[in-house]
Design a protein around this nucleic acid. Sequence first.
DNA 1: ATCTATTCTTAGAAGTATTCTAAAAACATA
DNA 2: TATGTTTTTAGAATACTTCTAAGAATAGAT
Lengths: 138, 138
Amino acid sequence: MKDPVAAELLRQKGVKPTPQRVVITEHLLNTVSHPTADEIMEAVSDKLPVALSRATVYNTLNALVEAGVVREVFTEPGCARYDANTSEHHHFVDVKSGHIFDIPQELVPQLKDQLGDRFKVHNYSITFWGEIADADAS
Amino acid sequence: MKDPVAAELLRQKGVKPTPQRVVITEHLLNTVSHPTADEIMEAVSDKLPVALSRATVYNTLNALVEAGVVREVFTEPGCARYDANTSEHHHFVDVKSGHIFDIPQELVPQLKDQLGDRFKVHNYSITFWGEIADADAS
DNA sequence: ATCTATTCTTAGAAGTATTCTAAAAACATA
DNA sequence: TATGTTTTTAGAATACTTCTAAGAATAGAT
C-alpha cells in the first residue's frame, strides 16, 4: 500500500499526482540527502512499472520547484540538487566528503531586517563551505 | 601603462602572473557584476595580443579560486559566476532582471556561533532570491 | 462505453557549460 | 644554447539540462 502523503501534498499544491511525480516526491520527502536529478532517477526507476525517462525527471523537478513542493539548492556548478525541506534553513557543505547538512536557523528574521523594504524575498538558501573539524563529535 | 595591482595580488597569492591571468584578474577586480566564464572571456579577449582560449579562461579561474583570489558564486544552475570581492558578504539575486547585488553584512559572527566547533568554515556565500520591490527608492 | 481535447511521458537529439587531451609555445635554469 | 617545466591552445569529449515530436494516459461530455 502506497504512502498517500506525497500524492496529497501534490494535490494541495496544484500538481496533478501522476505515478512518476508521486514516486519522485516520495523519494525526496524520505531522504535527508540532497540528491541530484540523476541520483533521483536511479533511486526511483525501479519503483515504477514502466521505464522512466530522464526528461520526465527534469520536467517533474521543475514542476515541483515551480509549485513550491521542493527547493533547488545550488552548491556546485554543473548540477542542481533538490530538497523537500522547504522550511527556512541553511546548508553546510563538507568540502571533503561532499555531504550537505541542513542547518536549522533563527537568523532569517534578522536577514530580512537587514535587507529592508526594498527587497521582496521569495526564496533563499544559505550555504557554507567548510569541513567537519571533529568527525566523532555528536 | 598597466595597472600593477592585479599582478602584485597574484604574486602575493602564489600564482605566476601571466598576461592571461593578469587581464582576467584585472577585469574581475574592476567589475561589480558577477560575470560568468563566457562573459569574462568576451570582456578580456581584445586586451591580449593573441587569441585567448576558452580552456585558459577556465584554467585561470580555477587557479584563482584555488589561490583564494576570487570566489565562485552559484546562483543559478548550469554556470558559475565569479566575484573578486572576497570579503564576507551576501548576494541578492533579482529574479526579474538577473542582477546580483553584493550585500555587506554583520551576520557572519552569529552564523559561526551557530555552526559551533564541529565545523570549520572555509568559504561561504549567502544568497537570496527575490525581487526589488521599489526600483526608485534609494 | 466512446469521442475529443488536453496533459503527460518518452527517446533521442540538441544545447550549453566545463573539462580533457595532446601538442605547441613560453619560460626558467643551467 | 640545451633542457626541463609550466602555460596556453584548439578542438574533442563529457556532463547536465532542455527541446522536439510523437505516442500514451487522462478527464469531461456525450
